[in-house]
């Protein structure tokens, strides 16, 4: 196995690790702000994954460069366009979640999830 292939596997594993750690951080962490950060980790992992999909070994930036007309020379622009949308979605999710956090803080005076869950049942 050549080193390049080994590392390209490593890349995917690292992204998967990032995703999984984000996922578990989100599920396990009790602090609501930290949960949100873990969620951002997850989203970043997904975006990285998508960008890797559009990647070609030796592909160049998908911006028209005079003289290069061969389409295969460019990296696939579609995933990048999609990811722009995804980033926007992430930003709005984060913004809304933070707004919720402030409301939650005002109402419950804590950001500890298990504590709120306990009081919620009352």
């Amino acid at each position: 196995m050549s080193v390049a292939i080994f590392f390209s596997y490593v890349i995917f594993w690292l992204i998967a690790l990032l995703y999984v750690s984000g996922f578990f951080g989100m599920m396990e962490h009790n602090h609501l702000v930290k949960k949100l950060m873990a969620m951002n980790l997850m989203q970043t992992a997904v975006i990285l994954f998508f960008l890797l999909l559009g990647q070609k070994i030796g592909g160049i930036t998908p911006i028209a460069v005079p003289g290069i007309t061969d389409i295969d020379a460019y990296a696939n622009p579609l995933p990048q366009a999609l990811m722009l949308t995804a980033i926007v979605v992430n930003l709005s999710t984060t913004g809304i979640a933070l707004t919720f956090l402030i409301v939650i803080k005002k109402f419950w005076n804590t950001l500890d999830e298990s504590e709120i869950m306990r009081r919620m049942d009352k």
């Binding site: 709005s92 913004g95 809304i96 707004t99 402030i102 409301v103 803080k105 005002k106 109402f107």
Partner: peptide, 22 residues
Amino acid sequence: ATIISIFDSLGKVGDPDERGNL
């Protein structure tokens, strides 16, 4: 305008006036 309004709302919603009702 969206980003500014989210930013503003982050500063505003926290006013401790009501029962946390948006």
